Simulated assay, not measured.
Amino acid sequence: MKIRFKNILRDPANRLLVLILFFITFIGFLLYIVEFGKNPEIQSLFDAFWWLIVTIATVGYGDIVPKTFLGKIIGIIIIMSGVTLFSLISGSIASLLVEWRIKERKGLGKVKFKNHLVILGWNNHLEKTLEAMGKFIKIDDYYIVLVNQAEEEDYENFKSKFPNLNIKFIHGDFTKENVLKRANISYAAYIIILSDTYGGRSLEECDERTLISILLIRTLNNNAKIFAEVIKEEKAKYILRAGADDVILGNEFNSILLSSALLSPAYHMLLREIASLDKMRVKLIPLPKNFIGKTFIELFNYFKRTSSSIVIGLVSMRKEFTIDDFLSSDSAIDNFIRQKFEEAEEDFFEEEKKDDYDLNLNPKDDYVISENDKYIFIIE
């Protein structure tokens, strides 16, 4: 407690506020001693402080007034200094509120949330991770605390993209215990650690910082679920031993995998199994031409029956546009326009003729396969 009180007194505004409160308390007790037993209006310490506060605030109800000579002298002092004291108290309180707001905006404050989500680190996966979370959980029910060394401007720009989320910012190095304590890491329910590339850190340094932070977190919180992004695969086993519940190797699926881990371990395992590059469960193969004109359910049943594979979607080439798609054949104006295009001897639809594909995931059973459908995605 002594250390905390000394920290409070370091601020000039706090020292002034403490001094004013001490002065008011002293005057209140002094007035009570002087007036008690001689003034029927002051029968208790509360009566003395009531008169003191009403006078300092310049309200002046007049229900209690000093009767003794010393009491009136005290009254004169309080009346003459009341406006100044009230202004100083108001200014000190306003200063504390402004200071608190500035600290919060700069990420220098602390949070008192419990069962919250903490995201350590900053990289280009952060925004996508929060977007993906919205697809798996009701994210606006969570308090989210970001802990990193990003600049205030970067954080404000980031927060403006998620106006409906309860996001707080803690600025600092998340490998330091005092920074983690400001994020109330001891009471966090979920912790996601991103490879912190902010400020141009090397990839080697990112994994080392992740390992250090997990070791530190586990000394403060043994119950939180920790999911860590790892750059180098050989570091994954050490991070798991340090206390991470799961690791996600750096790739384009990180945002989805990190987010799905919050929903359910089973869901997370499913996505990672499908996206696993070494097993190559998902394959893209050419569409057998004999299925053109048939329905999707016929294609689905064929692959399920012959190879135990599941067809999950079609890749279609977009139709090429020609001048005839826009002009009719029975209009004099259209014939004139067609003639001018032919005279120009230039293909104005050249860009549209470049290969351009659409992905059609899980088409309806009665979807009729056309010549524009070129490939199929299957899960083996």
Rank of each mutant, 00 (worst) to 15 (best):
V59Y: 13
F86G: 12
R101A: 08
G91T: 09
L96S: 13
F46R: 02
G28E: 08
W50D: 05
L30A: 11
E35R: 01
R105C: 07
F36W: 12
L30Y: 01
I27R: 01
V98L: 15
D47A: 03
F46L: 05
V98Q: 08
V98E: 14
I89D: 03
W51V: 07
I78W: 12
W50F: 03
I27P: 00
I76T: 13
K72I: 15
T58N: 12
I64P: 06
G62D: 02
V98F: 15
K103H: 09
I24W: 03
I102V: 13
W100Q: 08
I20A: 11
W51F: 08
F36P: 03
L21Y: 14
F26R: 00
V83G: 03
L96I: 10
E99M: 09
L16I: 06
I24T: 01
T55E: 08
V54S: 04
G75H: 07
T25L: 14
I102W: 10
A48P: 04
F69K: 11
D63G: 06
S92C: 10
A48I: 05
A48C: 07
L97D: 03
I20N: 01
P40K: 09
L70P: 12
W51A: 04
V65E: 11
Y61R: 11
K106C: 13
I53H: 03
V54W: 10
P40C: 05
G60W: 11
I53G: 06
T58E: 03
I56K: 12
T68H: 04
I33R: 15
E41C: 04
L97Q: 11
V83W: 10
K38I: 12
K106D: 05
L96Q: 15
S95C: 09
P40T: 05
G71Y: 14
F36E: 04
G28P: 15
E104T: 07
W51H: 01
T55Q: 04
I27V: 06
K106P: 10
L97C: 12
D63E: 12
S90G: 08
G109K: 06
S44E: 14
W50Q: 09
T68V: 13
K67T: 11
I79T: 05
I20V: 15
D63K: 08
V18H: 01
